[in-house]
Design a protein around this nucleic acid. Structure first.
Lengths: 170, 170
DNA sequence: GTAATTATTTGATTTAGGTCAAAAGTTCTG
DNA sequence: CAGAACTTTTGACCTAAATCAAATAATTAC
C-alpha cells in the first residue's frame, strides 16, 4: 500500500510569493508540505484575507473545491520557498476506493479538522485581540514568527495597527 | 441498500429542554431531525454558548466525539419538542464499510460542511453585530424566529442587549 | 548601493459594542 | 390564576479596537 501511495505522489517546489492555486481554477491537487509555508487566502474588497497557514507535514488544498470538484473563493500561495509533494484528486479517490483503511484514516482525520474549526470559531467569537494573537501563536507555534504581520492581522480579523501595538507591549 | 439503512435507523422524540447529549459522554448516535430544533452548545465561564442549531432534514452529533469516539466539550439539547431518527455509530461504520457509495456520499457532504465552517469564520471575523444577525437570519431562514434571543446572541458572540437593540431598530 | 516599493510603528481621534443596572414582558408551576 | 422565575428591553456610561494620518524601517529592484 505504501508503494501505491508513493507511486502517485510527486515532488514540487514553490518560490516565495508563487501562486499555488488560483481561485479561478478547481483545486485538483493536494499538497503535502515538506518545508516552507503555504497560505490559503481570499480576496475581500480588493484585500487579501488570510484564511489559514500550513506548514511542514500538513496537507493543503481548497477543501470544498477539492472535494466537490467545483470552484471556490480560495487562493493558495507560498509565503516562503516551499518544498512539497502532491497527489491528484483522481489518484486519491482511487486509493480511497481500493484501500478502505485509507478511507477510514481520512474519515478519522476529519474529526480533528472539525475540532480545529470549532475551536477557531470559539477563539474568534469570545476573545480580545490580544488573546486572539496569543491563541494564534499557540496554534502556529512552529511558524508564527515567519508570517508577515499584515497576513497575521487579516487572519485574526484585526487591523495591522492593533496587532503592531499588541506586539509592542512585550 | 435503502432497507439496510432503514433497518438500522430508529425513531426518538425529545421534549422541549431535554438533553440529547451530555458532554460527559461520548457521542455515539447521530440524529436526523424530522421536526423541531436541536442546539449544540458548550459551557464557558458557567454560561451556555450556542455553537449552532439544527432543524428538519439535518444530521446532528458532536462531530469530533462521534468520529473519534472520545469525549468533547459539546452538549446537545432540544429547544422545542423534536422528533428524530437516530443511527448508532457502529451501524453507520458498518454501512460505510459495506456500501462504498454511502462512504463517497459522506465524503462529498464533508465538502459542504467545510464550506459552511469557512463561511462562518468569515462572517464572524469581518462583520458588524448587525451584519452577523442578518447573516444568521439568512443561514437559519426557516427556524431563526423560533430560537430565543439569548441563544442567538451567544451564537453570534454578542451580548443580549446589543442583539435586542439591533432587533428594535426595525 | 541607492532609489523605490512595501511593511511596520506611532499618534490622535472616533465609535461600535460591552458593562452595569433596572424596568417591563413572558412563561412556568402549583 | 397568582406568584416565581426567567427573558427581553431600555438607559447611562465606558472601553477596546477601528480609522485616519504620517513617520520609520525593511525589502526589493535596478
Amino acid at each position: 500500500m505504501k508503494s501505491e501511495l508513493s507511486k502517485r505522489i510527486k515532488p514540487i517546489v514553490f518560490q516565495k510569493g508563487e501562486l499555488v492555486l488560483d481561485a479561478n481554477n478547481i483545486s485538483k491537487k493536494s499538497y503535502f508540505i515538506n518545508k516552507g509555508i503555504l497560505r490559503t487566502y481570499f480576496i475581500k474588497d480588493g484585500k487579501e484575507i488570510s484564511e489559514y497557514f500550513s506548514g511542514i507535514d500538513e496537507w493543503v488544498n481548497s477543501p470544498k473545491s477539492f472535494m466537490q470538484r467545483k470552484k471556490d473563493i480560495y487562493y493558495i500561495d507560498a509565503i516562503e520557498y516551499t518544498e512539497a509533494y502532491f497527489i491528484n484528486v483522481n489518484d486519491l479517490v482511487y486509493l480511497f476506493d481500493n484501500y478502505p483503511e485509507m478511507e477510514r484514516y481520512a474519515r478519522l482525520s476529519m474529526g480533528t479538522v472539525f475540532g480545529h474549526f470549532m475551536e477557531r470559531i470559539t477563539s474568534i467569537r469570545f476573545t480580545s485581540a490580544k488573546e486572539k494573537y496569543i491563541h494564534f501563536q499557540k496554534i502556529y507555534s512552529k511558524i508564527y514568527h515567519r508570517i508577515p504581520l499584515g497576513m497575521v492581522a487579516s487572519y485574526l480579523g484585526i487591523t495591522q495597527e492593533t496587532l503592531s501595538r499588541i506586539r509592542a507591549k512585550k
